[in-house]
Simulated scan of single mutants.
Amino acid sequence: MFALSNGKIYAGDTWLENHSVLVDNGKIVKICNVEDIPSSCPVDDLEGGFLVPGFVDVQVNGGGGVLLNNSPDKSSIVTVAAAHRKFGTTSLAPTFITDEKTKMQEMAGAVETALMENSPGIKGIHFEGPFLNIERKGVHDAKFIRLMDDCFLKLIADHDLGQVIVTLAPEKVTLDYIRTLVEAGAIVCAGHTNATYDQTQAAMDAGLTGFTHLHNAMPAMQSRKPGVIGAALENQDCFCGVIADGHHVHWATLGTTLAAKGADRIMLVTDAMSSVGTDETEFMLGDQRIDVRDGKCVTAEGVLAGSALDMATAVRNVSRLPGQSLLSAVKMASTTPATFLGLNDKIGKIQSGFDADLVLLNKEVEAVRTWIAGEQV
C-alpha cells in the first residue's frame, strides 16, 4: 500500500486538501486525513498538484503515429493507448470509422485480443459507422457507407468486445434495428446524420442514448426545425460528446451547450487522429492525405478530419470557459463518460473500491503523472 499526498484531491463538486489517497493492489482503499496515514505506508508527494480520476475518452481514432483504420491490429491499439496516457487518458474506446467489412472484422479481433490480454486502458470499441447518412459523411469514405445488415449484428455477437459503442444515422436504420443493437448490449449514438427532431425522439425511445461529436456532421438547430441537436439538448438523460478544440465548435456554442446539458451529460472526447503525441504534420487516411496545421487535421479541401486534440488540452480549454471550472471539466472527462459506458462503479471517481486510475494535473492543467491500476505509466 502507498499514499498519494500533498495535493488537491478531486471529490466531485469540491477539492479535498490535507487529505491523502491510499492505494493497494490496483484499487483505491480510501481517502483519509493526512494524520491518519499508516506509519508504515510510503508517501508519494504530489507537490501541490490536482489529483483527478483518469480521463475516459470514448472516441479515439489514433495516436502515437498510428491510425486504427490503417492498422487494425492489437499492436496499434496498444500504441494508441500509450500515446494518450501521456495526456491523462486511462480508459478509452478505440474507434474505427466506416470501412470495409474485412477490416471491421480485423479490428474486432484486435480489440478482443487486447481485452483478453488486459492491455492497459482498453474498455471496448467504438464503431463510428458504417450506417451513416452519406450527406453528412465528413471524411468517411462514401463507398463503405451502407444500409443496416445482419453481418454487423453477427460481428458484435461473435466477439467479446467489452463496451460496444455504435454511431449511426437514426434515419438510415429501423427502430427495430436500434432495439436489436441495444438488446445485444451496444450503446447506440446518433452521428453523421440528418435526422429530424421526431426521428431522433423515436430513436431515443428505441434505446439510443448518445450523440457523437454534437454539432458536427449534423444540421444546425433552427427555430422551427430543432432537429437532432434540439432533441439532444432537450433530453436530460442522453449523453453528448463534444470536441473542445475551438475548431469543431465555436466557444460560445460550446458554452451554450454546456449550460443546457450540464457536466453530468456532456462528455469531452478527442476524436484524435494519429498525430496526437507526435510531431506529424501529415498522415494518410485511406487514400486521402490529411494535413496537421494550426491545431487541427484537415483534408486538402479544408474539411476537418478528426482532431489533433488530447484530453488534457480539452479539460484545460473547458475549465477556462465562462461558467465552467476545473471541477466541471474533470467531471466531463472522467465521471460522465464512465457513466455513459456503464462503468461508473469501477472508474471515473476517486472513491473506495474504484480502480486506481489517476492523473496529476499541475496548475497549468497539464498532465504530469498518470497511474493505471495504481501503477505509474
Rank of each mutant, 00 (worst) to 15 (best):
F131E: 03
Q59D: 06
I187A: 06
L161H: 02
S91P: 00
E112Y: 02
R146M: 06
I178W: 01
Q163V: 15
A93V: 12
F87Y: 15
S76R: 03
T102V: 09
Q105C: 09
K123Y: 04
V80Q: 02
A157S: 14
M107G: 15
P130T: 12
K86T: 12
V43H: 04
F87K: 06
F144M: 02
G62Y: 01
V182D: 03
L155V: 10
E183C: 10
Y177V: 09
G48C: 10
D73R: 05
G65Y: 08
E106S: 14
D73I: 09
E128A: 13
V58H: 04
G48P: 08
V78H: 09
F144E: 03
T98I: 11
V173K: 06
G121W: 01
D150V: 09
L168A: 13
G54V: 06
G64F: 02
D158R: 08
S71I: 10
G64D: 07
I97V: 14
L67V: 06
K154L: 10
D73L: 02
A157N: 12
M104V: 07
G65R: 07
K172F: 05
L92Y: 01
A169Q: 03
H84G: 07
M107P: 04
N133A: 13
T98H: 08
V164I: 15
L132N: 02
T174M: 05
N70G: 15
A157Q: 14
H84C: 07
T102Y: 08
V78Q: 14
V164F: 05
V66D: 01
G49D: 07
V43Y: 03
D44N: 11
T113A: 15
E128H: 12
K154P: 02
L68I: 12
H140I: 10
V60M: 07
L153H: 13
T180P: 03
E112T: 12
L132G: 05
R85H: 12
V52L: 08
E171Y: 03
D150L: 08
F152V: 08
C151P: 05
Q59V: 11
A169F: 05
C151V: 08
V52T: 12
A82W: 00
D149I: 07
R136I: 03
P53Y: 00
E128F: 06
Q163K: 15
P53W: 00
L51N: 07
Q163S: 13
G62D: 02
P170K: 05
F152M: 11
D150Q: 12
V56A: 08
T89M: 03
G65E: 10
F152S: 01
I125V: 15
N69M: 10
L115F: 03
A83Y: 03
S71G: 02
P94Y: 04
A157V: 05
T90N: 10
K143R: 13
V139A: 15
M107D: 02
E128K: 10
E100W: 03
S75Y: 07
Q105H: 13
K154D: 15
Y177M: 09
F127G: 03
D176N: 14
K154G: 05
V60I: 13
G109F: 00
T167S: 14
F131M: 06
T113L: 14
I145V: 12
I178Y: 02
T95Y: 00
F50R: 02
L115P: 05
L92H: 01
I134P: 03
G88C: 08
S75N: 13
L168D: 01
D141E: 14
L46Y: 00
T98G: 10
E128G: 12
M104R: 11
K137R: 15
T79E: 12
D176E: 15
E112F: 02
R179S: 15
Q163G: 00
V139F: 05
L161N: 05
